[in-house]
């Protein structure tokens, strides 16, 4: 089995506090891999290390056959890894359509071009139409992103994330703050957008995790204490203990 993403003995300290304490993790090509763990386990930090937001203190991160350790965020994105954010992170004064277009521009080769019009680029239009259709925001394409409802902003967050066509997708609590009916829709959406791609997802809602994930890793205090199928994780005494133990404190 090929690894799409591989972390080897990754450490991260902020000052004297070690947040990530030697994480080894392998995300296989084409799987949906969930990372769970109690609050403060370091899930978001782990994402920030993988996606290049923070440098690692030590260790190595590989995206397929490329070493992406401590590369800048845009280089990692260009290498095919895209991520969403836990707190919605959009271009709030721009339209929904322009948000998605911006997500697609670089990967379609338009980069920093100032000699051609965005609206005349067929590839951008097709990509944007497709994404808007998939995230269900076709009807609101001209709305400023800041005016959307929370659930719609979460959907747009996903749209901007996948617009670049990256095939390793990292989602950071995509259903946080949603109602039950919204969560069901979001899960269906995540399933659609991750088909044929590799998905890594951090999620608190266990229903979502066990519904979506092929494999699950449990992160506790900056260490991965178990990785396995949902069945294995559910029955793991170690996980139960760690989870309940930390929950209790």
């Amino acid at each position: 089995m090929n690894a799409a993403l591989q972390l080897k003995d990754v450490h991260k300290s902020f000052g004297k506090t070690e947040i990530i304490r030697g994480v080894d993790l392998e995300i296989r090509e084409g799987e949906r891999h969930a990372v769970i763990g109690p609050n403060g386990a370091g899930k978001s930090t782990l994402y920030n290390l993988i996606s290049g937001r923070f440098p690692v203190s030590s260790g190595a991160i590989r995206l397929r056959d490329q070493d992406i350790t401590n590369r800048s965020a845009f280089e990692i994105n260009r290498a095919g890894l895209c991520r969403s954010f836990q707190v919605t992170n959009l271009f709030h004064r721009m339209s929904v359509l322009d948000n998605v277009r911006c997500g697609a521009l670089f990967s379609l080769g338009h980069k920093y071009a100032f000699w051609k019009f965005v609206s005349r680029q067929k590839d951008v239009a097709e990509r944007a139409d497709d994404i808007l259709e998939r995230i269900g925001l076709s009807g609101k394409r001209d709305w400023p992103a800041g005016m959307l409802s929370y659930a719609d902003q979460r959907a747009l967050e996903l749209g901007v994330t996948i617009a670049g066509g990256g095939d390793v997708i990292l989602l950071d609590e995509p259903t946080a703050g949603m109602s039950h009916s919204e969560i069901a829709q979001a899960v269906a959406l995540i399933r659609r957008i991750s088909t044929g791609k590799t998905l890594m997802i951090v999620e608190h809602d266990m229903g979502v995790v066990f519904d979506l994930a092929d494999r699950i890793s449990v992160l506790v205090y900056g260490e991965v204490i178990a990785t396995g199928t949902p069945e294995e994780i559910r029955n793991s005494a170690q996980v139960k203990e760690a989870y309940l133990g930390t929950e209790a404190t």
Binding site: C82, C102, Y112, V160
Partner: peptide, 27 residues
Amino acid sequence: ALTKTPFGRMSNAVRDNPERTEFIGYN
């Protein structure tokens, strides 16, 4: 015309949220 180009759109994007542009491939 410049405001309508990829550069122009991304200039707006950097104005709104410079950090996010880094995660869609832009410096």
